[in-house]
Amino acid sequence: MGLIAENLAARRGEDLLFVDISFSLDEGGALILTGANGSGKSTLLRVVAGLLRPDSGSVSYTPQGGGEARPAGEAAHYLGHRNAMKPELTVEENLSFWKDFLGDAGGGAGLCVGEAAETVGLGGIAHLPFGYLSAGQQRRFAFAKLLVAWRPVWILDEPTAALDAAADRMFASLVSGHLARGGIVLAATHQPLGLEGAKELRMKGFAGTPQDRAA
């Protein structure tokens, strides 16, 4: 059930960045990755999202109430450092494109574009081109993208960089709302998201070269 990662390992160049990372998250579970810069948080998230091939191990997602295990990426939203929005298009166009293109994964429904913009507290300016907005506003609308299409798993990489304190709180409430709906959150962050009962995984970085491990 839920998101299961087994014995993940990944390398950057020749060096192994991490080895034997295993975790499992049930519905409503959250895992916070912490660790110094370059310790492999982003790499782990990209491996879970299916964007990087792991050196060994596997990640899968099994929906609640049975069903086949699938690659976790197909059931996940990935919010990386970049917002995946086109500066030339208006916020509305961006969001409704992603709503149509992503579609809803089984077991839930996304909000409509207007509601999502209201939820992130920027209902009045969705008609503006995305490129006109400030960095913080752009990030907020990137959160709205998580809401317009339902995905049980959220993979968030430094989600709250460039945000003020109010937006931090808003984002924490989005995340706990998602968990309450039975979602799973996997986030790399330095700031506390204010989640109760979240597991924490501390990344240490540099697990040695393959030769070291063989020896």
Partner: peptide, 13 residues
């Protein structure tokens, strides 16, 4: 790729 959309496109079913 520049704005990160490619990641989302690659992840889809």
């Amino acid at each position: 790729r520049d704005d990160g959309s490619l990641d989302l496109i690659l992840m889809q079913e």
